[in-house]
Amino acid sequence: MLITILANITVATIILTLLAFAISVMIKQGKEESCASCSTKKRSACKGCQFADKCH
């Protein structure tokens, strides 16, 4: 009984983790392709500038 509950929780966790990962990557990607990717880090490039007239 306990094993079944644990097994269910495990599978559910795996699925939720995968989904959460997928969504977070998609959000990150969306940001990268917008002006939000313009950072002031020492060495970086802005992908958003390819799609917008001006980011800064």
């Binding site: 313009c38 950072s39 002031t40 880090k41 020492k42 060495r43 970086s44 490039a45 802005c46 500038c49 390819q50 980011c55 800064h56």
Partner: peptide, 8 residues
Amino acid sequence: EKKEGMTN
């Protein structure tokens, strides 16, 4: 098109 980035 132009690309922007940061260096130093």
